[in-house]
Amino acid sequence: MHELAVCQALVSQVVEIAQQNVAQGVAVITLRIGALSGVEPALLISAFPLAAAGTVAADAQLVIEPQPVRVHCQTCNADTEATPNRLLCGMCGDYHTQLISGDELLLANLELTTN
């Protein structure tokens, strides 16, 4: 359960950005998270209120955009969908692939209340 530590890192980044923009509050926080990031969105959402309590982000809505797991095949050059524990090329089945999406752990954007 390292999601609380991830949430604390998220909240400190959000608070910093809110201060830079002289915001009164944070309405929406949008994250992009892939299944291979090692972070579970449902746990992140349940940990968020604990980490955000008492901060400018306390009332923010946390929106998570899941990112698909996709691989690029070095053998046949195809880009295909994959699953977290089967990262083989969907065209030729080779395992010499590179992940092109699916390990994201990103703070994408914020909606700040500025009045």
Binding site: V6, A9, L10, S12, Q13, I17, N21, A23, A27, L31, V39, L105, L106, L107, A108, N109, L110, E111, L112, T113, T114, N115
Partner: peptide
């Protein structure tokens, strides 16, 4: 975004501090 709010693009890794 709604009036009274502003959108900020961040695109930063969540664990950037670490």
């Amino acid at each position: 975004v709604k009036a009274g709010t502003s959108a900020v693009t961040v695109l930063k890794k969540l664990l950037a501090h670490n």
